[in-house]
Computed example of a mutant assay.
Amino acid sequence: MALSVPDVEIEPEAPAAEVTAEARTYPDIWARIREGFRLEGIDGDAEVQAVAKRFGANGIVQRIAERAGGLLYHVVDAVDARGLPMELVLVPFVESGYSLHAASHAEAHGAWQFIESTAKNYEIGIDRFRDDRRNLVVSTRAALDYLQALHAMFDDWQLAMAAYNCGERRVQNEIERARRRGVAKPGFKDIAAALPQETREYVPRILAVRRLLLDPVEYGVKLPAIPNAPQYSVVEIHRDIDVLLLARLAGLTQDELLRLNPSLKAPVIIGRHNVNLLLPPQAALRLVDNMATHVGPWVTWRMLRITRPATPQEIAERNRLSLSTVLQANPLPEGHYYEVGSTLLLPAGRQGGIDPAQAQRAVLLTRASSECMVLQTCAGDAAKVVPPATVNGLPRR
Rank of each mutant, 00 (worst) to 15 (best):
G349C: 08
S4K: 14
S4V: 00
E116K: 13
N121S: 14
P85A: 03
E256K: 10
E66Y: 00
I60L: 12
C378I: 14
R141K: 14
E339Y: 13
E174T: 04
A16D: 09
V234I: 11
P12D: 04
L150Y: 04
A329E: 00
S322P: 11
T307L: 11
T325N: 02
P395R: 10
L364C: 10
A283Y: 12
V183Q: 04
L212V: 12
G56I: 06
I115K: 11
A229N: 03
V288P: 06
L100Q: 12
C378D: 11
H105W: 07
D381R: 15
A329L: 08
S99C: 03
I124C: 06
V385Q: 13
A348N: 08
E218Y: 07
V94R: 08
G125S: 11
L246Q: 05
D215R: 13
N121W: 11
A103L: 09
M291Q: 10
H101E: 15
N135T: 00
A184F: 05
I237V: 12
S369P: 08
D145K: 15
A229T: 11
Q328S: 14
A382S: 05
S104L: 02
N276Y: 15
R239G: 05
A362I: 09
R181H: 09
P15S: 07
A329D: 06
L327R: 12
T366M: 09
A65T: 04
S96R: 06
A178Q: 08
A106C: 07
G41Y: 00
V221K: 06
P227K: 12
S96E: 03
Y232E: 01
P281F: 06
K120G: 07
R67Y: 09
Y26I: 05
Q197R: 14
R308Y: 02
E11Q: 12
L246T: 05
F93V: 04
A142N: 11
L150D: 08
E236S: 02
V51F: 11
I306N: 01
I241E: 01
